[in-house]
Each structure stands twice: as C-alpha cells, then as structure tokens.
C-alpha cells in the first residue's frame, strides 16, 4: 500500500484529495482526526477542516494519512 501511495503522490501533484463513492469516502493526506462519530467526522486537512455529515459512518481503514469511511454522506463542509 505504501508503494501505491508513493506512486500516487508522485503522479498526483496535490496536497490532498477526497474520493467520494456511493457508500464510501476515501480521504488522503489528512493531518488529524478532530472528531469521529457515527453522524459526523471532522478531519484537519492542510489549511482547512473537512466536515463529513451523514448517517451510519463506519471506518473501514485508518492509516497515518489515509482514511476510508463507509456510510451515507449527506453533507460535505470545507471550513476555513
């Protein structure tokens, strides 16, 4: 996975990116987790806060710079 991340970071010249699928949200390069609850997840990103609001959030994968969350996303807020 680390190798894939390295390749991705080499190819994608971005500070972060967020992939939103039907039931999953995949976020790369977050800095900190401020809140982790079933209905709300707040992540500290580089220069802003990302607020995920929805239902039945469940963490599927949690790594140093990567988080995969499943659940119903209702609202996505960039708080600067």
């Amino acid at each position: 996975m680390q190798l894939v991340n390295k390749v991705r970071s080499f190819l994608v010249d971005q500070n972060y990116y967020i992939d939103i699928y039907e039931d999953n949200i995949h976020i790369f390069h977050y800095i900190d987790i401020m809140k982790l609850q079933n209905e709300e997840i707040i992540l500290q990103m580089d220069g802003f806060r990302l607020i995920l609001i929805g239902e039945n959030f469940r963490v599927k994968r949690l790594e140093n710079r990567e988080i995969l969350v499943s659940g119903l996303l209702k609202n996505l807020v960039f708080e600067r």
Partner: peptide, 8 residues
C-alpha cells in the same frame, strides 16, 4: 498511537 488499521 500511529497504528495503521487496515481493515475494521
């Protein structure tokens, strides 16, 4: 604790 969780 910087523990990587690969599957939950």
């Amino acid at each position: 604790q910087n523990i990587n969780v690969l599957e939950v």
